Computed example of a mutant assay.
Amino acid sequence: MSSASVVLKTDCDVVRFSIDKPLDRNAPLAKGEKKSKRVRMSKRAKRNELRFYRLMAKKKMNSPNPEVRIRYKLQKAKRKEAWLIEKLRKFDVPKASVNVYDPEILTEEEKHYLKRTGEKKKMYVPVGRRGVFGGVVLNMHLHWKKHETIKVVCKPCKPGQIHDYAEELAQLSRGIVIDIKPNNTIIFYRGKNYVQPEVMSPPETLSKAKALEKYKYGQSLEHTSQFIEKLEKELEEYREYVARYKERKEDASRSTAVDT
């Protein structure tokens, strides 16, 4: 692509266009002009810079002042927390515009019957540390191909998390929650007019590998947040201790001054 320039000239009320010569980028520079060069760090300079940062970190970790050590750990933990939050944002699946889920209305007799039949089933769909992902919904639809009800067992499960799982699975699978057991078991009913969908694994869910990766980042974030709270508490306690120590020292100096 040429870099020619178009110049508009108005001589004697007459408009004329003229095309200048294209700029030659490979042409030699005029006297006094200097070509800008990109400065690159050598491997040795990079190594020295890393060594400097490591020495500074080691110096802070081995500092005789406890406040310096705690503040360094706190700063490092907060950087890790921000990095983990940024990583977890990549696993946020944009939810497609889903129609309003309107489950069927069942009578108490039907619920009781479905609950008893669901409890007798030996087969179940597990929800493990990965949580709810596409494979769980796929297994539910495969079970519903031959059975009306299915058990979903959640292990491990935090207190109150079973209800979130039940709501999410009902929305994704279009099933009906019949009962939630105290042993973290949910009984689902496929519905009277159930039709197996063409795509049994919803597109707005994570894959098995990504769900595991998200779980690991989430666990790391949880532990890092707890560690930050612990460090902040330690720092506060140390500052209170220093303040009390200074007060005692001042009181002791005042008492000695009065005695003299």
Rank of each mutant, 00 (worst) to 15 (best):
D11E: 11
V14L: 14
V15Q: 04
F17W: 08
D20W: 15
A30I: 08
K34C: 14
K34I: 11
K35S: 11
R44C: 08
R44H: 13
L50V: 11
V68T: 13
V68D: 05
V68C: 05
K78M: 07
K80L: 08
V93E: 07
N99Q: 06
D102G: 09
I105A: 03
I105G: 05
T107H: 06
H112Y: 10
K115P: 04
K115Y: 15
R130D: 06
V137A: 00
M140N: 03
L142S: 13
H143K: 13
K145Y: 13
K151P: 11
V153N: 04
C154N: 01
K155T: 12
K158W: 09
K158I: 07
I162T: 02
H163Y: 06
E167D: 12
A170I: 13
S173F: 06
V177S: 04
I180W: 05
P182T: 04
I187N: 00
I187F: 01
I187T: 00
R190V: 02
K192I: 04
K192W: 01
V195P: 05
V195L: 08
V199T: 12
S207C: 03
A209W: 08
A209P: 09
A211C: 09
A211S: 05
E213H: 02
E213K: 03
K214R: 01
L221W: 07
E222R: 05
E229I: 09
K233H: 07
Y238N: 01
R239G: 07
V242G: 10
K246I: 11
R248S: 14
T256V: 10
A257C: 07
